[in-house]
Design a protein around this nucleic acid. Structure first.
Lengths: 133, 133
DNA sequence: TTAAATTATTTAGGTAGGTAAATAAATTGG
DNA sequence: CCAATTTATTTACCTACCTAAATAATTTAA
């Protein structure tokens, strides 16, 4: 990258994603799969559209990841009144296995956050908000 | 993502990569291809290994991107004394077309940087350094 | 009421990252 | 000297993002 700042940003992003994948590996999950499980656990059953709009990614990306999660038994789909819509929810397996995975991820996040002061974290949030805004 | 900070980080990374790809599109390039062209322009001919070590990505990723760049006529390869090694360098086309692309990218970067004060930028660099360290 | 437009999802195919294992050349040690 | 190890690159295959276009269901408007 031309600019050091952008170069560093992209490098740290790869670092964080790779580390998160390492943490998730024993649970048989990848980062984006986890992101969707977490969202479903937090907000309950929701449509594909609700998922991709919330996560700010395109629909086909979510289609594929949800299909994989379904194959692996983490989520299931129901059809609503609107027959176009697929409503995705956690399966029993998804619900039951969630807590220990969440604990692993939380502990990873805390490890990273230990490297930053509380002030750094707030500053970083503020700066990140300015980038897209 | 569990944590708002990580979630924001990943979102802004996608935002920046997508925006950069938009800027590069008229030039027929994608962000990672540009990253490699930029490196070769800056440091001169170098081996695949030198490229992936510098960029902090795995070898197969660079193999693929360099092959694509070769097909598109941006780079060429020579073999050194060590016959395992491939030395990659910019072609005439690569050298000639570089400056206007660099100008577009620079202008994109400046646009983003306008959203951040000089102080924000230094703070962000400092915080990014702490994440991996 | 039905043709046109919109919405939800999928399919197809591209870039960009990863791991694991193969290959070929160079280096090292007994 | 040559067998074993290391190094450079590639191949094969997975996740994760993208765009463009297809399909099917719903909504809107003439």
């Amino acid at each position: 990258m031309l600019n050091e700042l952008f170069h560093m940003f992209f490098q740290q992003n790869r670092y964080l994603v790779n580390k998160l994948n390492e943490v998730l590996k024993p649970h048989g999950l990848f980062s984006s799969q986890w992101t969707i499980l977490f969202l479903l656990h937090q907000d309950g059953p929701m449509s594909l559209t609700a998922i991709w709009k919330y996560l700010n990614v395109e629909a086909p990306t979510v289609t594929r990841t949800v299909n994989r999660l379904e194959t692996l038994g983490w989520v299931e789909r129901q059809y609503g009144m609107d027959k176009r819509e697929k409503i995705i929810s956690l399966t029993k397996k998804g619900l039951e296995q969630f807590p220990p995975i969440a604990a692993s991820v939380r502990s990873f996040e805390q490890e990273i956050e230990k490297k930053l002061s509380q002030q750094d974290q707030e500053l970083l949030k503020g700066i990140l908000k300015k980038i897209e805004g």
